[in-house]
């Protein structure tokens, strides 16, 4: 499949343009909101810090938030692109594959039963939950002779998500205090997190990003089909395993910081595919960049809907994402 942008040079230029756009969005994310902030205040907050209200908002709230939006948005989008490649299924994404609900269940279990609260504990819990959820769904979806079909994968994912979320809710009904503590997290939000949350996960993100850029050409081969890839000398098991690990690092890390933010992982890779086609060497950087843009924009939008309070960004992405998902489901050719 060819994208709109065909020439290599144009693709490279496109990446640079999107990168510039990310910077514009980040500035917007820092400046816009209930308290509007000028560029001067922003620069002074880091050069001449005087403890004024606006400067504190910038250092403790806006800048961490913008950085988290960039990291989480791009990680989710890359994870989604990889999942779609690995399962050869256009509807695969972290929430469909049970990553979000698995991680949520794990974290809520730890919070209600063992009182976990540190960012690093959250990170590992989210990784474990994400890995367990996606492995279960993947195995269930690929049972049988015809292997992994979109419908089986989606059904298995939906059933597991239903199970996990009803267990999560069961745990929460037995403990109302922890419901108040985690409900904001369960919706998916990047507000009110500080850089500690990000730094607990950032190393895993960086490993995930680098590996995903390296694995692009391998996935191109894998997309030709399991048998073709094998006959071309690829160790498909290793490639699949590596892809799986990257997905868990990126998606699990995102859930650990921001909670289950849905639909970025499904919408963005499709937009990227429309631009550059199915070549994973380009698709992955494009997905990552566009994911950052989408989450930044959704986050800015979320501040304006019910001012002065905010819509959690997870809700904003769901509102954008549901129609896109339905569009994709309608476009697909199902008998």
């Amino acid at each position: 499949m060819q994208g709109v942008i065909k020439k290599r040079f144009a693709k490279g230029t496109g990446l640079i343009i999107i990168a510039l756009f990310i910077i514009v969005c980040m500035i917007g994310s820092i400046a816009l909101g209930v308290t509007s902030i000028s560029i001067d205040t922003f620069i002074h907050a880091y050069t001449h810090f005087n403890g004024s209200n606006n400067q504190v908002i910038i250092r403790d709230e806006r800048v961490p938030r913008a950085l988290i939006a960039v990291c989480v948005g791009s990680s989710l989008a890359i994870a989604g692109a990889l999942m779609q490649g690995l399962t050869r299924n256009p509807l695969a994404s972290p929430e469909i594959l049970g990553v979000n609900s698995g991680a949520s269940l794990m974290i809520v279990t730890a919070v209600t039963l063992f009182g976990a609260s540190s960012p690093s504990a959250f990170t590992w819990l989210a990784f474990t939950g994400a890995a367990a959820g996606s492995i279960i769904v993947y195995l269930l979806g690929s049972l049988g002779r015809e292997g992994l079909t979109p419908i089986k994968l989606t059904l298995a994912g939906a059933a597991m998500a239903a199970l996990f979320s009803s267990l999560t809710q069961g745990l929460l009904t037995s403990n109302e205090q922890s419901l108040d503590a985690v409900i904001f997290w369960l919706v998916g939000s990047i507000q009110g997190k500080d850089l500690h949350n990000l730094s607990a996960v950032l190393p895993y993100f960086i490993i995930g990003w680098l590996l995903s850029l390296l694995i692009g050409s391998k996935i191109n081969t894998l997309m030709l089909g399991e048998n073709v890839a094998k006959s071309l000398g690829q160790n498909t098991f290793i490639v699949k395993l590596a892809t799986g690990i990257i997905i868990v690092l990126l998606a699990g890390g995102s859930v650990a910081i921001a909670g289950p933010i849905s639909f970025i992982g499904i919408v963005v890779p499709h937009a990227a595919r429309w631009m550059v086609g199915n070549d994973y060497r380009w698709l992955i950087p494009y997905s990552g960049m566009l994911g950052a843009v989408l989450l930044l924009l959704a986050d800015i939008l979320a501040r304006y809907v019910i001012m002065p309070s905010e819509v959690p960004v997870g809700v904003a992405t769901a509102v954008i994402g549901t129609p896109s998902f339905i569009y994709l489901a309608r476009k697909g050719d199902f008998k």
Binding site: A158, I183, V187, V315, A318, V319, T322
Partner: peptide
């Protein structure tokens, strides 16, 4: 398609409910 759209829709309504 009915099943897929239903799943998409329930993800959307779930977020709105929360």
């Amino acid at each position: 398609r009915l099943v897929l759209i239903g799943i998409g829709l329930s993800a959307g309504t779930e977020a709105l409910t929360k």
